[in-house]
Design a protein around this nucleic acid. Structure first.
Length: 208
DNA sequence: CACGGGATCGTCT
DNA sequence: GACGATCCCGTGT
């Protein structure tokens, strides 16, 4: 039940951290409603060279400013006007790296999550998307910029000893990127092999 | 199961 | 004023 310390997030290898975060527990304690889940799918974003990253070319705007914060900071933004997407900022302050959490396996507080989602948590469709589990855990822009390495926060991450062997980690291209062109092919999307709580596996196919 | 379109609004040009 | 690091539902097979 140990909270992952801020030092963990200072690595400049955001790809390695994206893999290492698989199997860690994301805890939400918003307004006293405790829910948790295991991170089963992640995606890496890395400024300045990654065109798919909001902070591509180290572009600073009111929105991207959070990405430049110290590793261990929470970055939440709204996508398509509806969905709150949850990211973990990594690397030292000034370096805009982040990891998008794309899916979790719901573990605790299933009744609370069910009410928020209006869907049974035994269904694999309940949390297998970045806009889905945030709804279950009430993650919103209110949490943008908070510290993920403290249990005093509304959100934090724990290492409960679960270990995912490297042979059980699948990598693939990132999704949902029409303008980032070649960067979308970078295999920076990671998920736990044979885990029913990940989003539908994409077939890697560069031939059509 | 694949595909297509609508929802909906913050963000940046 | 256009565009999303998405989701859901309808239609057709």
């Amino acid at each position: 039940m140990s909270v992952i310390p801020k030092s963990y997030y200072q690595s400049t290898d955001v790809v390695a951290l994206s893999k290492d975060l698989l199997g860690k527990y994301l805890i939400s304690n918003v307004d006293g409603n405790y829910t948790s889940g295991i991170i089963v799918e992640t995606e890496a974003y890395r400024a300045p060279d990654d065109k798919a990253c909001h902070a591509y070319a180290n572009k600073r705007t009111p929105r991207t400013e959070t990405m430049f914060a110290i590793g261990g900071t929470c970055y939440v933004y709204i996508c398509y006007g509806i969905h709150n997407l949850f990211n973990i900022v990594t690397a030292p302050e000034g370096m805009a790296h982040a990891i998008l959490v794309r899916a979790i396996e719901p573990i605790e507080g299933l009744d609370i999550m069910k009410d928020r989602r209006m869907m049974s948590m035994t269904k694999k469709e309940s949390c297998n998307g970045p806009g889905k589990f945030t709804r279950c855990m009430d993650i919103t822009k209110k949490q943008n910029g908070i510290d993920l390495s403290s249990k005093k926060s509304a959100l934090w991450i724990e290492d409960r000893g679960l270990r995912i062997p490297k042979t059980n980690i699948i990598s693939g291209p990132r999704v949902g990127m029409s303008t980032a062109e070649e960067c979308s092919h970078w295999p920076w999307r990671f998920r736990i092999k044979n885990n029913k709580w990940t989003s539908k596996p994409d077939v890697v196919n560069y031939h059509k």
